[in-house]
Structures are given as C-alpha cells and as structure tokens.
Nucleic acid binder design. Structure first.
Length: 556
RNA sequence: GGCCCUAUCGUCUAACGGUUAGGACGGAAGCUUUUCAAGCUUUAAAUCAGAGUUCGAUUCUCUGUAGGGUCACCA
C-alpha cells in the first residue's frame, strides 16, 4: 500500500535535467581489479581537525587496500552545510600526508583531485544523489515529509516520556501515507520539507549481519523513516550519500568507527531499496582515554587535545612512531613482528581482521608511544635526526633551529655521540622536542640560559670541584685517547682520595671520599649543566678544547 | 531506560577445554672501565562475580555486575 505520488508532483520536487541511473552507471564503471583486492576509503567531514581515530581508520583501511593490490581513496563528506568548513579539507589531506598514508584517489596535497570516480567531495555530487532520491520516490520507497524540526523534536520527547522507542516510524510517521493532494497543498504553500525513506522494516524482526570484526550479529531491522535527503540544499544526508557513493566508487570494505554499527540495518535497507550489493562492513573499536583512572571514554574532538592528529606533529613525534604505535593497537602481534624484523619497513607487515577484531577500545598510552618512538629514533643516523629535527624546530622551536643551523657539522657530531656504529645506540630521543632538553647544552646560548648549576648537582665531590678542575687543566691533552683520558681522571681522583671504581668504593666505603664517578660528575655538571648525559669523553671531543676550558673555568 | 558490543597484570595484549596463565610498556631491586640512556639479571602485578556443563573452564552456557556504543540533530 505504498502511496506513490503522481509523476506531475514528483517533477516539482527535482530538477528535470537529471541524468538517468543508466548514465551514472556508465560514468562510474565497475573497477577492474585483481581477485581479492579491497577498495577502502576514508570519509571524513571537514570540520577543522583530523581526529586520531580518523588516522587510525585510514591507516588500517589503506593497509588492507594496498596489501591486496586494491585502492584506498579519500572522500570528503560535507553534506552538512551548517557544520562543514570546506577549506579545512586541507587539514585532512595534510594529516594523511604527514602520517605517510598514501591516497590513490581524492584530494591531494597539491590541492587537486585525482581518480576516475570523482568528484570526491559530496557537495559536488548533488546531481548523482538527486537521481536516486528521485528514483526512490518514483518507486514509492521514499516520500516527502513536511514536519518542522520542532515537530520532530517534540515527537521524540513525547515518545521518551511515554517510554516508547523514539523516532519517526510507524504510526508516528505522519507524512508516510499522506495523499497526493495533501502533499501538493504543502508544496504550493512552499512549506520546507525533507525526503524520508519509507521503511519496510519491522523492529521486532532480527536480521543476521556479518561484521568483519564483530562477527555474526543479530540486529533489529530498521523501521525508522529516516531523513535521507534535504531538497533545500539539494544534498542527501550521510546515510544515503554513503550508500550511493560506496556503490559507484566501488568500495568493497567499509572500515569505520563502531558508533556506526547500529545504523547498519538502515544502510542495508537502503542498498536493497536501490538494488545494489552492499560492501562488507567492519566496525572498529574506538581509541579511548581515561581521566580519573577508572572511567574510559572515546577520545573526544572537543575535549581532548590528543584527539587531534596534528598534535603529534607539533609535539615532534616522527610520524612513523605514531604509525607503528597504531599498528600495534590494530594488530597486537605487530610488536613481535617488529622485534623479529627490526630493519624492515612496517609496510611489510600484513594486517589481519582476526587480530584487529580483538582490539577492544584500547586506551591511548603516551608512555608506550614514547617508548616506540625512542626505539625508532635510535635507529636513525645523525644526519637524519638533524634534518628531521631541524625541520620540526624551524616550525615549532625557532631558538633550537637557529642554534642547530649555525654549525651543522658541530650539531651532527653532537647528535652522533653513542649513535652510528655504537653497539647499542642511545635511546634518549622520543620526540624532536627532546633535542632541546637532551642536546641543548652543546650550544652556548642555550647552555647559558639554563638554570645556574647548584652545588647539589655536584654530588659527593662538590667540595673538591675546584681542585679537580685545576688538576685537570694541568694534565689535559685534547689528543688523548679515551683510555688515556680516563686514566687521567682516575689519577686526579686517586690523589684527592677517590676510589678508581664503584666496586672498590663499595668494598671499603670508609677508605674513600667517593669514587671516580663522583669526580666525573663535576665535569659533567660543569660542561652540560646536567647529571645525565652521554659519554663525557665524546662530549669534550665534540665541544673542543676552548669551549671545555671556558665552561670548566667557571668553578674556579 | 531499550537495543548492541565487550570483560586476563596499572596499560596494550598472548594462551586447540589441560600452561608454574606468557610477552611488551610502566614500577621495584641489582649488575656495569665515569653519569645517564641502553643492555643484562631478578622481582611485584591479572583471568569481574556467582551458578552450570565437564575428569578438568581464562576458554562453553546462563545470571548478575561493570565498561563502551547507539537511540533529536550531525557525521
């Protein structure tokens, strides 16, 4: 008993120059891809920032596409004119670029679209949607509804109050069975309206749904006459847009956040109404955070700065650190793979749905991220750290950049201490911003700006600081080998009553004032202002005699 | 509240129905030709609760509990 509107009335709802369904089919032919190839996509709405969850979903989607020789594309979902900020598409594109997630089709960093299934921005596809919104009305599968937003709201509130499942459905679907005359009357009055799906579903009926990640599910059929199209803007709502686009763009696998799970029945109904085969769905558990240590919640764009993907760039994380951390959240065996294949590109790791399915709303763990990152940076050459650190610093830490650039070779030598060729390279840098704290003292202006050295830092040998430095001046030879150099340090200590090593000191602590480590500390603190630094001999080598003497002198 | 999903150390997780419940991060202790870092050694730390099925349950079933998602609009 679907109420089908007369053609003359339908003609008033849509432009009369719409391409036919056939024409669209010709424009967007089926993709020719190898067996098993997945076509995946990211469909963000441009609202100003890229969510970390979006990066996570894209990373996973992109990897599945490319590990099966398929296609990953980017489609900007800007159907909500009120919320979309089209210019922020750039933010999304740049984020994907930063994280090295290659997009085969869609908007690129250069500002131009590529791909044969475009345009890849929904607001530019209005005609396509209109063809099918019209078709649904012609077939009686959709109808115009003249309820005001206030009416719909009141309806919802009323239903809630009465303990009834809220929504525009069944007997509450006021315009579902309106006569052509009633429709015509509103139309001629110019009443604003929306187009709703005429759902055939029964909420009491369960349908079996297979989700790539959640497995076999039983969900209630959709029976809501969902708003699918807004003639005032000429654009569909998300649900219809997703169905039409993923059909014509040839998407085979939709991987999206699990907040979408409950709308799967609606989407399946729409695919059926249009006579198309739906893609496979996989619903990802969200990345979460905890505030008071007990309650978990999904990262929120508004409240949580760490939800913003660009934060990781600002903080100075190398993009691959974040990528590898996310890969580990997606497939927990990535970590083992990485351990077994320390030198391989993480692209050689294949993601599986089986593992992904077990990832269950993980908490974002910065400590772990930082550990992953230190591991990655420890494998870089000094030159790479210099280049990448400098390009970060130029944008986010000009003072550091300025110093790094003054003498690139000096900086690289400093960065190379205990690094290239070392059996176990240092793991002190997790983010480029660590460069300032960990190596800043190499640069005189930064060193002079540090907190003045307090006696506390000198430790056990603080009373002998002057004597130690004086003795050092007498014997220092910058051409000494490391062994010769260290022998001299020990000798200085010995004369002043310090043991040669920690062992000797521990055996007979009462015999000594301390041990050679305490003597070394005097130099360390004077030279760097810190008690933790790499090997002192190397530091002196890099700094050069003049700078070393200059800094040591201050204690006298 | 209805519906859906989930439940192992603090965190991320591993374990054909049979393991001393494993690993990683973080914590603690120790080792070292200078301090750190790293590395190595050691260590504390978990199967949400209760029933049932079973010779045997982290694993299967049920109930409860807790957490997450969703239910006006938007995506």
């Amino acid at each position: 008993m679907n109420q089908i509107l007369p053609e003359s009335l339908i003609a008033k709802l849509f432009p009369n120059d719409l391409p036919s369904a056939e024409e669209w089919k010709e424009k967007y032919p089926q993709r020719k891809l190898p067996e098993g190839a997945m076509v995946t996509r990211l469909g963000p709405s441009p609202t100003g920032l890229m969510h970390l969850g979006g990066v996570y979903a894209s990373l996973i989607s992109e990897r599945f596409a490319h590990q099966t020789n398929g296609v990953f594309f980017l489609r900007i979902e800007d159907t909500d004119e009120a919320r979309s900020q089209p210019e922020t598409t750039e933010v999304i594109v740049k984020s994907l670029d930063f994280f090295n997630i290659p997009v085969d089709e869609g908007m690129t960093v250069s500002g131009e679209e590529k791909g044969n299934y475009g345009p890849y921005t929904q607001s530019a596809r209005a005609k396509l949607y209109q063809t099918f919104a019209k078709q649904l009305i012609e077939q009686g599968k959709a109808y115009p509804c003249f309820c005001t937003p206030e009416e719909t709201n009141t309806l919802g509130e009323q239903q809630m109050k009465e303990g009834i499942r809220p929504g525009y459905y069944g007997k509450w679907a006021k315009w579902r069975d309106a006569s052509p005359e009633e429709v015509e009357a509103e139309l001629s009055k110019g009443t604003p309206y929306v187009i709703r799906l005429r759902s055939n579903g029964d909420f009491e009926h369960k349908i079996k749904v297979h989700d790539l990640l959640k497995g076999d599910l039983e969900l209630s059929e959709n029976d809501i006459d969902k708003k699918i199209f807004v003639p005032a803007t000429g654009l569909p709502r998300y649900h219809l847009a997703h169905v039409i686009d993923d059909h014509f763009m040839g998407t085979t696998h939709v991987l999206r956040g699990d907040e979408w799970l409950s709308s799967v029945p609606l989407h399946l109904e729409l695919f059926e109404a249009l006579g198309w085969k739906p893609p496979e769905y996989g619903h990802l558990a969200p990345i979460q955070k905890t505030e008071d240590g007990s309650k978990k919640r999904k990262l929120s764009k508004r409240k949580d700065p760490e939800a913003n993907a660009m934060l990781y760039q600002e903080e100075g994380f190398p993009s691959e650190s974040v990528v590898e951390y996310l890969l580990n959240l997606a497939n927990s065996d990535f970590e083992d793979w990485r351990k077994a294949n320390p030198e391989k590109d993480n692209r050689e790791f294949s993601l599986t749905f089986e593992r992904l399915a077990r990832s269950n709303g993980p908490l974002l763990d910065f400590v772990k991220l930082n550990d992953v990152s230190k591991e990655i940076v420890s494998k870089m050459s000094a030159a790479e750290i210099y280049d990448r650190g400098l390009s970060w610093a130029k944008q986010y830490h000009p003072k550091l950049a300025e110093e790094m650039e003054k003498d690139p070779d000096y900086t690289k030598n400093a960065l190379n201490i205990e690094r290239e060729g070392a059996p176990r390279p240092r793991k002190d840098i997790g983010t480029w911003s660590d460069l300032y704290a960990e190596t800043g003292y190499f640069f005189d202006p930064i060193f002079q700006n540090q907190e003045p050295v307090s006696d506390e830092l000198f430790g056990a040998a603080k009373d002998d600081a002057g004597a130690i430095v004086n003795a050092f001046f007498e014997t220092f030879n910058e051409n000494d080998t490391k062994d010769e150099w260290f022998e001299k340090i020990k000798e200085i200590g010995r004369k002043l009553g310090y043991a040669d090593g920690a062992k000797a000191y521990k055996l007979e602590p009462e015999k000594y004032k301390g041990q050679v480590g305490d003597v070394a500390k005097i130099f360390r603190v004077l030279l760097t202002g810190k008690t933790n630094t790499p090997d002192l001999y190397s530091i002196m080598k890099v700094m050069g005699k003049e700078r070393v003497m200059e800094r040591l002198k201050r204690v006298l």
